[in-house]
């Protein structure tokens, strides 16, 4: 029981720097990522939890879940249902190519103290808006920190051959730009991904990749990497499976009134056996 209490707290401390409202890990997990045939469906699970990929803490509540079709058009997830610990939904694959399923937000975050109490904006579950920021965040306050912050959580599935139309960056926030296609990953092969922060190479971005099945082994056995000058990381997979991948970025090149810029990125990628 003690472990259950301690673990979130420890993780909370680790990611406090990013001011993440959710200290836990969160993901959108596809049932399969490379499909053949016609008119196929893929099921997804979205959950907040620390046990990869065991949904045992909170369901993800989406404000802006988007499905990007291979031609770049937007569509919606179907059969969305939120359970106790996970949100499930389906995506219909009518056209061949790569689909991106994502949720992303960009905005300002602030934390400060008022009468010795910690305050933050946006609060848990709250969405950033310019108006909301102006209304809630004081210009001067004790221990005021204002951050330009972006979050993105996404995954990819491909019907037929992989395509790249949906992989174009928006140049907002922290994004993955594939060098190796995210639906073309094999355990014996090195994969290269590039990360951009607001369209520029995210040098120094810290990546952690964890293969599924942590509950059946004694360690997280994670892969760690730091993005180079070009924003690139090279990954050598630890076997086949679905990987939880988390990237954190931080610098001081923020838009005013922010003094820090942070980006967090999460994806789930499937690596197939050779």
């Amino acid at each position: 029981m003690k472990m259950n209490v301690l673990k979130p707290l420890l993780l909370g401390a680790l990611v406090a720097g990013t001011l993440s409202a959710e200290a836990h890990r969160a993901w959108i997990l596809p049932q399969e990522t490379q499909l053949s045939g016609e008119d196929r469906w893929v099921g997804f699970e979205a959950a907040v939890s620390n046990d990869i990929f065991v949904a045992n803490y909170h369901a993800v509540r989406f404000n802006d879940l988007t499905v990007l079709q291979p031609d770049g058009d937007k569509s919606e997830a179907e059969n969305l249902h939120t359970g106790k610990y996970r949100t499930v939904f389906d995506v219909k694959l009518e056209d061949e190519g790569t689909y991106k399923i994502f949720t992303a937000s960009n905005g300002m975050r602030a934390m400060w103290e008022e009468d010795g109490k910690r305050r933050m904006y946006p609060g848990r579950g709250e969405q950033y808006t310019e108006e909301g920021f102006a209304e809630n965040v004081p210009e001067k306050a004790d221990k005021l920190r204002v951050m330009q912050s972006s979050r993105r959580m996404e995954t990819f599935v491909t019907l037929g051959g992989p395509t790249t139309e949906t992989l174009q960056p928006t140049n907002k926030g922290l994004e993955l730009v594939p060098v190796t296609h995210p639906n073309d990953l094999y355990s014996g092969e090195q994969a290269t991904f590039k990360f951009l922060i607001d369209g520029e190479p995210a040098e120094g971005a810290e990546l952690t990749a964890i293969r599924e099945g942590t509950r059946y082994r004694n360690s997280q056995d994670e892969i760690s990497a730091v993005a180079d000058k070009k924003g690139e990381v090279k990954l050598n997979w630890k076997g086949a499976g679905r990987y939880f991948i988390e990237v954190e970025y931080k610098d001081d090149k923020a838009k005013k009134p922010a003094t820090e810029r942070t980006g967090s990125y999460v994806t789930v990628l499937e690596v197939l056996p050779d």
């Binding site: 490379q34 499909l35 053949s36 045939g37 016609e38 008119d39 196929r40 037929g160 051959g161 992989p162 073309d184 094999y186 197939l272 056996p273």
Partner: peptide, 22 residues
């Protein structure tokens, strides 16, 4: 029916990757 049989073509993983999917 409805090309249902194509659903499992990708299970021939190497062939699917190198040729089948295109």
């Amino acid at each position: 029916r409805n090309a249902e049989g194509e659903k499992w073509l990708k299970d021939m993983r190497q062939w699917w990757r190198r040729s089948g999917r295109s």
